[in-house]
Design a binder for these strands. Structure first.
Length: 251
DNA sequence: CACGACTCCTGCTGGC
DNA sequence: TGCCAGCAGGAGTCGT
């Protein structure tokens, strides 16, 4: 029993404007996730949602008036799943079941391993980077080997692993990749534990704010002392993205 | 195939 | 105090 409302024509891509018709009185059968894509499964297809960098979903009582950046509602009974996305980097897409498994969707097919699943191992990471000459930070961000490691957690994970972000991925040893795998898992688990917040305007599913986590090791700490050795944290640009690291702790 | 540059969008920050 | 350029971020697309 669902109904759909759009309040804009698009976010990153045009909204599937036939979604209200497609989902009328349909039931969500299951929910899932692949990388940073959220999946709402119906019998005849899947709604794919991405929050971009500023998006958030809330569950509200239906009847609550939408605010400025509330662009998409999925009403289920007396409640509402509402997507707000000020910077509009997010997405709402539809993948019909008749087009095959949603994992084969063009945006999902090329995604790398899930970092919190067993498949993500030092051996496979090592193997998949043998032909990658780009700096490890960029390879982590690329998403085709491992997903879920964004700009902040890439810097944080490399710090934990003691790896310099500029090192070419194919020059990193298996032993050091083992450290990196552990570092990524610990970093992501800690982030989830802390509410996963990265932006100052972060809000939880009920709309509560205040989760903002500032206990980063290196991210955003340019010129401040390394929490491990006191050396001042360095900031560089890699592929137009800021990278933070400690020159002494990360070789 | 691998990889770099560019792009989307808007709120916030820093400089004047 | 006000204005505006620049930055930030996820990740797809295009050119090399």
């Amino acid at each position: 029993m669902t109904s759909v409302t759009f309040r804009h024509t698009s976010l990153r891509w045009p909204f599937p404007l036939d979604l209200p018709t497609l989902l009328a009185s349909r039931t969500i059968r299951d929910i899932g996730r692949r990388g940073k894509y959220l999946l709402l499964h119906f019998d005849h297809g899947t709604v794919i949602i991405h929050l971009g960098m500023s998006g958030h979903l809330r569950i509200l009582d239906s009847g609550i008036a939408p605010q400025k950046h509330d662009y998409f509602d999925l009403a289920v009974g007396s409640q509402l799943l509402r997507l707000s996305d000020p910077r509009r980097f997010g997405a709402v897409l539809w993948h019909a079941a008749e087009d095959g498994p949603v994992e084969q969707h063009i945006l999902l097919a090329g995604l790398g391993m899930e970092p919190l699943e067993e498949v993500f191992s030092a051996q496979i990471l090592y193997q998949k980077t043998r032909n990658r000459a780009a700096p490890i930070k960029q390879v982590l961000l690329a998403g085709d080997i491992v997903v879920g490691v964004g700009n902040i957690y890439a810097s944080e994970s490399l710090f934990r692993a003691g790896i310099n972000p500029k090192i070419a991925a194919h020059r990193i040893s298996l032993a050091r990749y083992a450290l990196l795998v552990d570092a990524i898992r610990i970093t992501l688990a800690a982030a989830i534990e802390n509410g996963g917040s990265t932006l100052r305007d972060f809000v939880g599913v009920n709309g509560q704010s205040g989760y903002f986590q500032q206990s980063y090791f290196v991210y955003g700490r340019t010129g401040f002392p390394c929490r491990n050795c006191g050396t001042l944290i360095t900031q560089i640009k890699q592929r137009q993205r800021s990278t933070f690291y400690c020159k002494k702790c990360q070789k």
